[in-house]
Simulated scan of single mutants.
Amino acid sequence: MSKPVPDKAEVALEYPDKFYVGTFEHSSRFEAKLDGSGIALVLQHPGAADERKSVHLHINFGLLAGILRELARSVAALPKDDIAHREQLAEALDELQRALGAK
């Protein structure tokens, strides 16, 4: 079940001969779920055929774990006074840990 995008996502794909960029904001929707080998993420922007866009991404668990570790190492780059974003991330992480049975 897809949900409204609560903030913003920017996606860029770069190939040797092409460059694609797209933004997904509040009028867009997302879906994220675990499957047998990783996470599936879908970002969708509805609208007329010339405005519609979607991105489908699958990340295996090993890569996701590596991404989370890199995020942990770079959290110092998030300003200490950015309380709102720190709380959003901490609350989401707590929810994931509870769901995994890690707490």
Rank of each mutant, 00 (worst) to 15 (best):
A40G: 02
A32F: 15
L71V: 03
R69E: 02
Y15A: 08
E31D: 08
H26D: 14
E70R: 02
D50N: 12
A76F: 04
L71Y: 03
N60H: 13
V42T: 08
Q44P: 03
N60S: 11
D81Q: 08
K18S: 13
P79V: 07
A77Q: 09
A40I: 02
R52Y: 12
S27M: 09
G66D: 07
G62H: 12
S54P: 05
F30P: 10
A48M: 03
E31H: 15
G62I: 07
A76K: 14
L64D: 07
E25M: 09
G62D: 13
I39G: 04
H45W: 00
Q44T: 10
L63Q: 12
R69H: 01
E25I: 06
F19V: 05
A48C: 03
H45Q: 05
A77M: 15
D50F: 02
L68A: 15
A84C: 00
L64Q: 14
F61G: 14
Y20N: 07
S28T: 10
E25D: 08
G62A: 13
A49Y: 07
H85G: 11
A76W: 15
A76V: 06
D82A: 02
L64C: 09
A49W: 05
E87Y: 01
I83W: 12
D35S: 06
E25S: 14
K18L: 14
P46F: 06
Y15L: 10
L34N: 03
K53T: 07
L63D: 15
Y20I: 11
P79D: 09
P16K: 12
A65P: 04
D82H: 03
E70P: 03
H26T: 08
S74Q: 13
T23A: 14
R86H: 03
Q44F: 09
S28N: 09
S37I: 03
D50P: 02
R86W: 01
Q44G: 06
P16A: 14
A48W: 07
G36P: 04
L34Y: 14
E87H: 04
